[in-house]
């Protein structure tokens, strides 16, 4: 559907070069089921969860020309900072149709001025087909260049620096470098930052045997601009031998523990609690958000920036 008449933005854009989430605390993924709860929240100083509460949306869900979906987001934006998290950009491969996609992202960014913009270090599109999932790239020099090219098209198109997220790995593909090397190289050469998804990292460590702490220690704190946490589930057939990135359960204790380690390495970062299925009452998600905020409040290291 074509984008229609997005409105002139009343918000100040962040400077183009900065990673802009320093002042953000713990955020929540914005779900349609919770819009009334969110709109009923007091804003700013009056908000019991503190000034740091913010909301993240999947950017492509707002590829609509008009109507209530955009209007709800406008209402939320009046009181809260937003993060736009893309899931359909296919940064890793097939960039031919990306300009049209990015044009829609840019129109939304221009209106809503999100503090953070992110995408995934994966592929999802080839030969005119969109495989609506986040497929991992092989960690080869060839794939790295393809990813960097995609990030470049995206960042040029939106006119902002973006963050790219580490994938969930269920098996190992033949590679020429490990994932931290791959992501750091992509960030250094493209100028993007990194979104470290702690749940993805935990899942990958359990599924493929990598050392999650060693992984975190290879990432320069200066590149990190956001952290995700979420719930996962065991595979229905293989059980805990294969953990699935379901976003359908509360955050696991192992993920909370790994978050604590990540914050000790990266310092204070915006932390997002994701939940995309089996959506509980808003109050339950706010309890997880407040727990994440407590982790941030106890984080004494403020980062290297």
């Amino acid at each position: 559907m074509a984008m229609g008449h997005l409105k002139a933005n009343p918000f100040s854009p962040p400077r183009q070069s900065e990673i802009v989430g320093d002042h953000l605390g713990a955020g929540l993924g914005l779900k349609a089921e919770h819009l009334d709860d969110v709109l009923a929240l007091p804003a700013g100083d009056a908000n019991p969860s503190g000034n740091g509460l913010w909301f993240e949306v999947h950017t492509e869900n707002y590829f609509v020309a008009g109507g209530p979906r955009l209007n709800y987001l406008r209402s939320v934006r009046e009181n809260f900072e937003l993060s736009f998290h893309g899931v359909g950009g296919s940064l890793g491969y097939d960039h031919q149709s990306m300009p049209a996609h990015v044009k829609q992202v840019k129109a939304l960014i221009d209106e809503f001025q999100p503090r953070l913009i992110s995408e995934h270090a994966v592929w999802s599109r080839v030969d005119g087909r969109y495989f609506a999932d986040l497929m991992p790239l092989p960690r080869t020099h060839d794939a790295l260049q393809s990813l960097i090219d995609g990030i470049d098209v995206y960042q040029t198109g939106v006119g902002r620096r973006i963050l790219i997220e580490n994938p969930s790995n269920y098996l190992d593909f033949v590679s020429e470098m490990d994932e931290p090397q791959f992501l750091v190289e992509a960030a250094n050469r493209s100028g993007c930052g990194l979104l470290i998804d702690i749940n993805n990292l935990y899942i990958s460590s359990q599924n493929t045997g990598i050392d999650a702490l060693a992984y975190l220690q290879q990432i320069p704190a200066s590149l990190v601009g956001e952290i995700h946490i979420a719930g996962h589930d065991p595979d229905p057939e293989l059980g805990r031998a294969l953990l699935i990135d379901s976003h359908a359960a509360e955050v696991d204790s192992s993920v909370w523990a790994l978050l604590e380690q990540a914050l000790s390495i990266f310092g204070h970062q915006p932390v997002l609690v994701e939940r995309d299925a089996n959506i509980p009452a808003f109050a339950e998600l706010m309890r997880e958000q407040q727990k994440a905020q407590r982790f941030l409040d106890q984080c004494t290291y403020k980062g290297s920036r």
Binding site: P138, Y170, L171, V174
Partner: peptide, 19 residues
């Protein structure tokens, strides 16, 4: 040719199921 452990190839079903 692209999988390190051939026994894990059935795990690719996670991506197909997700799609």
């Amino acid at each position: 040719d692209f999988c390190v452990n051939p026994e894990h190839i059935k795990r690719m079903a996670v991506y197909r199921n997700g799609f």
